[in-house]
Write a protein that binds this DNA or RNA. Structure first.
Lengths: 340, 340
DNA sequence: CCGTGGTGCCAAATCGCTTTGGCATTGGTG
DNA sequence: CACCAATGCCAAAGCGATTTGGCACCACGG
């Protein structure tokens, strides 16, 4: 085992005090440039690297960003990470943090503000608050700078970065419309995001504007424990919709794998995609891509880059600052066009 | 901001010394059970949560597990995380760590052993060492307990958990054989894992046993910067193989998305899968799943569960302990069977 | 020649926790 | 009754950094 090299070691080797070492390395105090140079050389030679723990304790910082994933009542954190979207969020957050020289800490379930404070985080990213999210209450007294990623059910509570859900939903609907669909159904989830409601509202508003009848169905995603089941619940819901009278000529799925579920449903019912039915999905991922399903790329990386910038910038972002990121529509086979 | 509650606060409130508070909470020293109970109550009431930084400094532990991703010469860490497999590894590592009450730190590029030591990690998971991996040298003097995940090019260097590559490869080959293939090609990568070589060797050995001619091609994955290109390079390589004389009636791809690349190649060349050609892939993921491609589930979660157990167990695992995890074959449409 | 201001350096306090070693007090034993 | 061991508690010394406040020393101007 390599004995840890401390400031004291460097100080002794360089023949100066601990203070001077610290000042030399940080560039802070008054130190003769020559001394400074020498101390730095000695430190480098000894392979000195400051201890994180000590530094954290002294400074109250940690060069670490925390990621607080949603805590759904119906699903464990571990299960949640099994979802493609959250997995990608975690990865993108790591990348963004690394990019800024910070490490990323995927936080375990958090109970109290003080527990959260105990990590000594530089910044905190809170993902997708749900309605009445207990996590939001924790943040109130927290000194840690925080950015919300996702739509805040309470309105503009604090700095946030989020997808323009209303706009994105419309983009999806417009796309189907352009490809010839006139009766567009929506399969929404029952997850308690406020974005769920926003999507629903934009949908009904859009339908009203176009003067078409909305076909809204809710797939019970809260009953789902793991990802593979998502497509199944969507499929069931879609089958009902497709077998109903006045079946839509396009369906958009508002959750991961819902598009695939619709495609499976169509196959079962004997409806051709995209000949008889256009299918699109709210969240793009590898499955949608491989399945040729049109979807929205939520630009997770962009969102997290912005989040990190807000966390790290000198000036704390104003409380009411919400940065909107627009989703990118990725057209694929599933909305190529109706047969007639 | 909530003022931090410290041991001193609890001590004062409970009318005891700091030592007694610490002992009461940790259950370590000699403390009257009644006192212990009272201190605990007071602590709970005050919402006391020990400071991580202070605790880390005093104990030299951090309740944090580090994840050291491979550092390929041709690709940045961030790009690497864009690969489905490594993304899943990162997520599974988080989950496993959370499961044991630890946090997971995705480490930035690491230069020196002392830098690595500075994190004060409880344990370190080193992923997929490459041949002549500079990271391995760093580990030699490191006090942090380490587990390797992936095949060690140097042999049994230290505790490791890895997929039984030789066995898995054979399982894949046997599966195609059972489904009627007699000339099975392999598209391997040129990534400098030693598992790459192991796969190749098992392949040629298997072919020799069966008395069939090997068809081995190398797709230049080192030239790839990001995931979408993987399928492309595999496709090119597969096209050459399919257009060659004596074309194989099955092809197994030994890297993420290689199976999909082969399917695309077959489509381009006008060969039906699985009627004229069976396709299987070494690593299962959502794309393979959605594309109906038979693949090996590498049981990433199992691997990381084992890795964490090795890191956390009382007894440090013996240096030469290598835990083999076998991959699970997931048969899908792409190997249903040849037409004749 | 003395006061003034700037410069280079350092001793010691601090962050919040763990842990060692020792000091009373108690109860049991010879 | 004196002695010993066990018990309950605490003061203080760490962990390894940062930072405050102050001490010499020097040069300069009055």
């Amino acid at each position: 085992m390599v004995a840890r090299v401390t400031v004291a070691d460097v100080a002794q080797a360089a023949g100066v005090s601990i203070t001077t070492v610290s000042h030399s390395l940080s560039g802070k105090g008054r130190v003769d440039p020559a001394t400074r140079k020498r101390v730095r050389e000695v430190a480098a030679e000894l392979g000195y690297v400051p201890s994180r723990a000590a530094r954290n304790l002294a400074l109250g910082r940690s060069d670490t960003i925390g990621l607080l994933l949603p805590q759904l009542p119906t699903m464990s954190l571990e299960d949640l990470l099994g979802f493609d979207y959250y997995g990608r969020v975690a990865v993108a957050a790591s990348q963004a943090a690394l990019h800024h020289g910070r490490a990323l800490l995927v936080l375990p379930g958090v109970q109290s503000a003080s527990q959260l404070a105990s990590f000594g985080l530089d910044g905190l990213i809170v993902i997708d608050p749900i309605v009445d999210d207990p996590r939001l209450a924790l943040l109130d007294g927290l000194a840690t700078r925080t950015v919300l990623m996702g739509q805040d059910p309470r309105g503009a509570f604090g700095p946030a970065v989020t997808i323009d859900t209303a706009g994105s939903t419309r983009a999806l609907l417009d796309h189907c419309w352009e490809r010839g669909a006139r009766t567009i159904g929506m399969i929404n989830s029952d997850l308690p995001w406020s974005a769920t409601d926003t999507a629903r509202d934009s949908y009904t508003a859009w339908c009203a504007e176009r003067g078409v009848e909305p076909h809204l169905a809710i797939a019970p995603a809260t009953s789902v424990q793991s990802r593979p089941e998502l497509a199944q619940v969507a499929k069931q819901t879609a089958i009902d919709m497709l077998r109903g009278s006045d079946r839509p000529d396009a369906i958009i799925g508002m959750l991961e794998d819902f598009g695939r579920g619709v495609v499976l449903a169509a196959r079962e019912v004997g409806i051709d995609v995209p000949g008889d039915l256009l299918v699109a999905q709210d969240i793009d991922d590898a499955v949608a891509s491989a399945g040729g399903i049109t979807a929205l790329d939520l630009n997770v990386h962009t969102q997290l880059d912005i989040a990190l910038e807000m966390l790290i910038s000198e000036e704390p972002p104003p409380v009411e600052e919400t940065r909107l990121v627009s989703a990118t529509l990725v057209p694929r086979e599933s909305t190529r066009g109706l047969a007639r």
